[in-house]
Design a protein around this nucleic acid. Sequence first.
DNA 1: GTGTTTTGTAGCGGTTTGTATCAAGGCCGT
DNA 2: ACGGCCTTGATACAAACCGCTACAAAACAC
Lengths: 244, 244
Amino acid sequence: MKKLMGPPPHILIVDDHAQIRESVARFLEKNGMRTTVAKDAVEMDAKLATGQYDLLVLDVMMPGEDGLSVCRRLVPTGRLPIIMLTALGADTDRIVGLEIGADDYLAKPFNPRELLARIKSVLRRSFREEPVAGALCGKRVRFAHLTLDTDRQVLIEDSGAEASLTTSEFKLLTVLLERHRMVLSREQLLDLTAGRSAGPMDRTIDNQISRLRRKIEPDVLRPSIIKTVRNGGYCLAADVVEAP
Amino acid sequence: MKKLMGPPPHILIVDDHAQIRESVARFLEKNGMRTTVAKDAVEMDAKLATGQYDLLVLDVMMPGEDGLSVCRRLVPTGRLPIIMLTALGADTDRIVGLEIGADDYLAKPFNPRELLARIKSVLRRSFREEPVAGALCGKRVRFAHLTLDTDRQVLIEDSGAEASLTTSEFKLLTVLLERHRMVLSREQLLDLTAGRSAGPMDRTIDNQISRLRRKIEPDVLRPSIIKTVRNGGYCLAADVVEAP
DNA sequence: GTGTTTTGTAGCGGTTTGTATCAAGGCCGT
DNA sequence: ACGGCCTTGATACAAACCGCTACAAAACAC
């Protein structure tokens, strides 16, 4: 069998039973995946809004909005594959789920190894080919006194001077630009730039910001473009417009 | 659910029980699909050799070569999706099937409506990844300051100078052009260009990229067309248009 | 078979990036 | 104001990653 390398896939698990959530999460992490859990649709929406996920494991039977409804809502948006967990014997649930557009289902109680196999199978199919620069892909973007050429990954000052960015500086900058004037936590930034979650004493983002500031701030000692929000994270404080 | 129009999908059903074959075939045809049946692996091979199919429904337990073996053999050849039919409770069969690379399975006895839903689900998935592939065949393609003549496997610079590409350079470039602006991992590139998976310390793609860059980059020291994404892979960062 | 081209492998060295550490500066109490 | 405490900025260093060269193996042509 072919092995999927690269960054570990990030799975979001939604189930109202704490025990199932946790045991599934632990099992998947032991097998090299990242996991995040949510106890219901509301919590799920919050996680989806701030994070980046490769696959959703979704319980059908939940208090509040149920799994089928969630599925109906998410499938049309496109890119997130869904595996549903159904009660055993609820034939129609399964069929409806598939007809709605879930990528797979599994009847409870299930063998964790089988869930893993199904996740891998679905991931293999959806083969995430991400654009380099998200929505900014292929464009030239103006902000403050700079223009970012997303094709060449270089910054052009108004004076005409060019500065090249490293891959992770570029990634961090595009993430900030896409969400300019929003405060982004270190956790979010790490997730969006590197696709991993932060360790206990993780200063990676601080460091990256520091390096990036050296290339974009007119006065590094008094940053005006990337603001730091104490106890919050960082924020790109400038207007961003598409340039020709 | 959205209906996929166009020519009806053609399903090949392989099962040694005549009754199952026929009833499944009839049910699927009633629901707008074309079907063809085969009673074992040998007959299946004959049908595959002469016809064009969109999906294979494959019984695991068969006299002669069994379903798992068939699956192992067909999956690597590429893009024929497979749904396997297993005996109920044969947990390991199902898991092994998925691990080998089948797209789905169904436990016998099954609800025909569920088989239909799964077929549609798998077809939807395999349609999703298709659109870019192979589109360049026989065309002339412009990108950056170059034109690729896919018939002659030759690059023509705007100045008029021509450079010939080796087979694997051409293949690699084609793959990058077909998914331009997407980040492709070395694993993916190796799979798409050579159809094999990477060894533990495989630098083959790095090398190919290096060779290709020498022929297409204006400044090899600062590549602008093929960008490298650290920890990610490579990406062709340019617009690609069909040229007459 | 011989010679040429193409393709895969190994290794060195530069660049990039994560971690550890220390210095600086805000926040809050007294 | 002053001094601890916590958060952030900067520097230094080590590890990982990638580009390049050189060479060996394989494919191809003759």
